[in-house]
Write a protein that binds this DNA or RNA. Structure first.
Lengths: 334, 334
DNA sequence: TTGAAAGCGCTAACAG
DNA sequence: CTGTTAGCGCTTTCAA
């Protein structure tokens, strides 16, 4: 039963003594075929181990049954999880995913986009902020496009994003409810995007509770473990030591825990610490990190759903936006 | 400049007043074209923003410039890293990767394999042990195939794997060098595959050092944090408490650290702990984990290289095997 | 230096 | 119920 030459639909037709049309139709059931013929054809298909060439099919149908997911780095757990969600959504309808990492390089992204444009039915694009110019090729190709993490949809593309603002507020409220009043925030050194929205939410929650956020309690630092530790150290030196600190992400929060431990401060006894994202390590550190989980998998699913809808849509329709609220994962650090 | 209809090579030819043949050749440079004609064609291509349909190309060329990577779970950092390595290797030659997760489900794997067979030029397959039967479809299709993590290559497929045996020995030797004598091993409840080979290496290193491994010092447990903690607790209750313990992977090692901390044991002062894999969390726990890093990215690169070679190969050639030694990552836990 | 035309493997009018 | 045939968009002989 060793490898024969690639068998095509004509081989099957010939051996079964029917036309290729008939073979095609027993496969697709798009028109009736007599039971006898069908059986005969099926048998031959079996014998020849025939499998229709998907490429030819795609070419005919002008559909590739493939979706591109383009991310800065597939090694990043967040994107990985998005990929998983996307795949979960589209596999049941026999769609595949091409995944590509761009390293955040605009050139690479452009290249990949161009190469992929004619091989996919839809594109999920993630990462840094996109200019309309970056998007044009895929919009022009009338390919369904969804941006992950962008804030507003536009003509020719949808958006799935986090309710970062709400998440920041949720985190602050949780801490407020637990009796904390002096709540600090360690953020990233940028004043836009998710970090800014998280801080924004934190600020409004505090305001709503009648507390004015002491500006000295919002510090920014590189989003690394070391950065978190340094910022935390500074915060702990404040005359009025914060009772709780929210960190812009889990890695920073882990650094903050380091700094607390170094000073012999008990977490959460002396100071409560929270993060964002719920990375795998969040449950692995001591104390286990209380954090705002980003629905990364759901992001991917939503993207898949949007793309699938757009594919089957006849009329363009309004740009859409799906937003996920963060979910509090209560563990030990706050 | 809004979206026109899909422009094809015929549109370009018409507008430039040449034949499609000529357009094709200015694109491929596979035969001389007069400078004048070339310029004219290029200009039209520009104007129309023409991009050749890759699908049609693939169909003609019988090459898809796509490679499939099939893994149990793309969410697992190890596979993610493999994916990255694979992509790094094949992108420079304009190949793409289709990534698919199987959840370790044989049925799903079979399905995906079948669906992908006619859409890719090569397959990298990872995960549980494969029977020849599982492999047959792709071998029969004469598609380059490499198995990740399998031990021996066979007819029609190559293999890239870890020198697990050596890694086990390396870990044990490191501990031996640091003066430890009572060295335990927490392994997985299986007696084959990577875990078994790691234990094997550990055994031979001990033997070479003139120590017979006390069988009571090799315990098996579910490969979870909790499993690690339980096994560690048992080990710590031994009359002759081990001075060091090697864990079959980092998650288990983190559990072991938990157990040590719970008993007030200092790591590495009272007991040294090592893991395998060097997952991201390894550097995040306290104390930071000393571990044997698996060259996951290099695995992917090697797989890519093998597949690319096989694709351009005319003669089948011998099955190949590439092995990576693990690398000791010295941190604080041992 | 250039074109005409034959397919790659499949599906779907159109015709019996 | 079944078959003939025209493409999908491209590359590549073969011929001029």
């Amino acid at each position: 039963v060793a490898g024969r030459q690639r068998v095509g639909i004509t081989d099957v037709a010939a051996k079964a003594g029917v036309s290729v049309t008939t073979v095609s139709h027993v496969l697709s059931s798009r028109r009736p075929v007599s039971q006898a013929t069908r059986n005969r054809v099926m048998k031959v298909i079996e014998e020849l181990d025939y499998r229709p060439n998907e490429l030819a099919r795609s070419m005919r149908a002008q559909r590739t049954f493939t979706i591109a997911l383009i991310v800065p780095d597939i090694t990043n757990p967040f994107y990985t999880s998005v990929a998983r969600g996307l795949q979960d959504k589209v596999r049941p309808v026999s769609y595949h995913c091409i995944v590509a990492s761009t390293d955040g390089d605009r050139e690479v992204e452009r290249d990949i986009l161009h190469q992929l444009l004619t091989r996919v039915d839809g594109v999920a694009l993630s990462g840094s902020d996109k200019s309309p110019e970056d998007l044009r090729p895929v919009v022009d190709a009338r390919l369904p496009l969804v941006l992950l993490g962008a804030d507003t949809p536009g003509p020719g593309f949808d958006v799935v994003t986090n309710a970062d603002n709400d998440s920041g507020a949720l985190a602050a409220n949780y801490l407020l409810e637990r009796g904390h009043r002096r709540i600090a925030f360690i953020t990233a050194p940028v004043d836009f995007g998710a970090p800014a929205r998280r801080v924004e939410g934190y600020r409004s929650a505090l305001a709503e509770a009648g507390l004015t956020a002491d500006p000295g309690r919002v510090v920014s630092t590189p989003v690394t473990r070391e950065g978190g530790a340094r910022a935390m150290a500074a915060l702990m030196d404040l005359p009025e030591r914060p009772e709780a600190v929210i960190c812009v992400n889990d890695v920073v929060a882990i650094g903050a825990i380091d700094a607390a431990a170094e000073r012999g401060l008990n977490v959460p006894g002396d100071v409560a610490i929270m993060g964002f994202d719920d990375i795998e390590a969040a449950a692995l550190v001591t104390p286990k990190l209380t954090t705002m989980a980003t629905a990364s998998r759901e992001h991917g699913q939503a993207a898949g759903e949007l793309i699938l809808e757009r594919i089957t849509e006849t009329e363009p329709g309004e740009p859409r936006r799906v937003v996920f609220p963060a979910r509090l994962v209560r563990r030990d650090s706050a």
